[in-house]
Design a protein around this nucleic acid. Structure first.
Lengths: 132, 132
DNA sequence: TCATAATGCGGGTATATACCCGTATATAGT
DNA sequence: ACTATATACGGGTATATACCCGCATTATGA
């Protein structure tokens, strides 16, 4: 049954779609949130936690904690920069490999979703979400 | 910047919209996830955790934990039924009051979102999310 | 009836997420 | 140069969420 609440609809959709992406990307050993975070880092390294939080629109403490997991997994490295307050995050080789190997998996699930909804509807959805 | 990833777009939108609803509903002392859960209970009480999980499309353990918070808040009651395995959840008076008092706040934020997107776009979004 | 299977939970573990507070470092203004 | 302020984190705390495992209870079938 379809919820009448935009928020609930969104939350449900996000959970369901997250599960889809998680499953698709699982072979490379990360979930979609981690994959997205790796991509954000790749968009410009090294990057400080606060800057990464801005890029992802997440709370800084959230980013810090999520990054720590990626660090434990050996995908990224954290280090202090010139400004001793900042923590610089960079991709390690394994992180880069994860991105490379995950890309086609991501493409596939992305395409699967577009196919299921229709390209036009998919783009409309994306625009709507953006304008929310 | 708009993410190219449906999943990331959805997750971001869900977070942002959740924050909106949370803020709107805060005066009655619950967040939107809790409010939605209360509503699910109200849809038919008493209700077992597994049934509630089906209604909300959440994992049963998630529902159990979330319900426990509502119980601590004095909004719902948990009890064993005829089938000793089942845990029956019912609304307490305070829970019902929370629903009543929250309803107009929910209406308001819902209307605010429709106004911002336009009714047609909002309905299209909801349909798209549902078909996802 | 008695063993087996199915069902319903609870708890452990883990991630994602946010907010607040305290501490360390850097910057600015006097 | 020194103080006041701003910035960057880390950790505490809390919710939401899922998956898996084990235990208790019920239902099934031989």
């Amino acid at each position: 049954m379809m919820s009448q609440c935009y928020c609930t609809s969104l939350r449900n959709a996000a959970r369901r779609v997250t599960a889809l992406y998680d499953e698709a990307i699982a072979p490379v050993g990360v979930n979609i949130a981690q994959f997205a975070l790796l991509r954000s880092i790749a968009r410009g390294e090294p990057v400080a936690l606060t800057e990464l939080a801005k890029r992802t629109d997440l709370d800084r403490s959230t980013v810090g904690r999520n990054i720590r997991v990626l660090e434990q997994m050996g995908l990224v490295a954290m280090s202090r920069g010139k400004d001793q307050r900042e923590v610089s995050v960079s991709l390690l080789d394994r992180g880069r490999r994860t991105l490379d190997e995950g890309a086609p998996l991501w493409d596939a699930v992305q395409a699967r979703i577009e196919a299921r909804m229709g390209t036009a509807a998919a783009h409309a959805l994306r625009a709507a979400l953006h304008n929310l």
